[in-house]
Design a protein around this nucleic acid. Structure first.
Lengths: 217, 217
DNA sequence: TGGATACAGCCTGTATACAATCGGGCTTTG
DNA sequence: CAAAGCCCGATTGTATACAGGCTGTATCCA
């Protein structure tokens, strides 16, 4: 399940960070049940830190607990998904605006490089996964550059909660790649308005890939 | 410290809800240390539920814990306060837009009633407290009417985190009352754009009451 | 054969015991 | 008298024991 322990002041914090990372990068996919004793074994810990870490994740919103039944990696239904997209529509364009012109060239170069490496003509399973990864890294780079840690973490959580629906957006592969190129350019050139607009369309398109319509801009 | 126990499936949840309510309505003000044994006594519980509730509140962002030293009701510094206001500037106008025309008349009437009861000429300590209370109830009514539970809870948390700075906005008493009246009217008439704009100015004004300038609309 | 029920095992929720860490006050010493 | 070091009490962090609920299975009855 995992490898070496990471350093941390308290055991609870270590377990929390470990689980959080595993949820965010989908090693623990949406809906995964979190069994105490198994986590104790896998994370080399005892029940108290594991339980406290789960409770903290519950507060963050990444974990759902059903009393006397167990905890699960949070899973949202369509209705909640659309609500989350609405929130993201308010936050992500703003973050992109703030980040424009503030992301190191090296970071942007690397992302562009990876985008170019994708096979747009006939994307394979790996290409989908890679794009998803790039998307995550780009959003994160924006979050960091925006200089607002709370905003960054919030967006990361909301993005994670949407993961259960991301497979529905495969039809948009080509569009998404285009959007990413355009976004990278706007961010590089410091065109805040442009970056914000592209991000809005990007998130909106993601939300609309599902059979529902959203609010207006 | 408090009265009767509230019903709940698990003890942890009960303690969590109790503490959360106490933090949100400032019975537990910003910075208050949360001593385990004292909470056990006051809430008639044992350490495990108390600790788990605290951890969950930590995840929500309402509590901060310093390892081996203790937990405290979250307190933000000026820098973080401004960042939170920036997030609220993205969310609250949107929520107001969504809520326009969807808040029951009775709710709006009651709020307007309470606004009229304030002494605008020479506000006393009670008037300040009452306005703060009205403000909270209005924001909450908007959050509920927006029909997005996650958004509502998020805004409530962010608002709570700003409480440490709300005393600085006393100079704006009269302006705030005006803004509330205007907002109530727009919400009642279903003027979404207007409601959104007023809310933006309202939050922005709150943030700018402090010696710093914010981002642009 | 179908369904209801009782039972068993596992899992979660809670309480408590034990260990580690921190802060404060006292003592000691230059 | 001031500063440094040490010790002790208190509080937090962790481990474990105990209790109660839920699920799934097997059995019994109609």
């Amino acid at each position: 399940m995992q490898g070496l322990k990471v350093a941390s002041d308290t055991e609870t914090e270590r377990v929390f960070e470990t689980l959080k990372a595993m949820i965010l990068d989908t090693r623990l996919p949406t809906g995964t049940p979190l069994n105490h004793s198994q986590l104790c074994r896998d994370l080399q810990s005892s029940r108290t830190p594991v339980r406290e870490a789960i409770r903290k994740l519950e507060g963050v919103g990444l974990v759902t607990t059903v009393p006397h039944r167990g905890s699960y990696v949070a899973q949202v239904d369509l209705r909640e998904f659309l609500q989350i997209v609405e929130i993201r529509l308010q936050l992500e364009p703003f973050a992109a605006r703030q980040a424009a012109g503030r992301i190191p060239d090296g970071t942007l170069d690397a992302l562009e490089e990876r985008l170019h490496a994708l096979n747009r003509a006939a994307p394979t399973e790996e290409d989908f996964a890679a794009l998803h990864q790039i998307d995550g890294d780009l959003h994160h780079a924006i979050g960091v550059a925006a200089g607002n840690r709370r905003l960054d973490e919030l967006m990361e959580t909301l993005r994670s909660l949407c993961q259960g629906f991301s497979h529905d957006s495969r039809l948009r592969f080509d569009v998404m790649v285009d959007e990413h190129f355009a976004l990278l350019r706007a961010l590089r050139d410091g065109e805040a308005d442009e970056a914000s607009t592209i991000m809005y369309k990007h998130v909106r398109g993601f939300g609309e890939a599902l059979p529902r319509l959203m609010g207006s801009p």
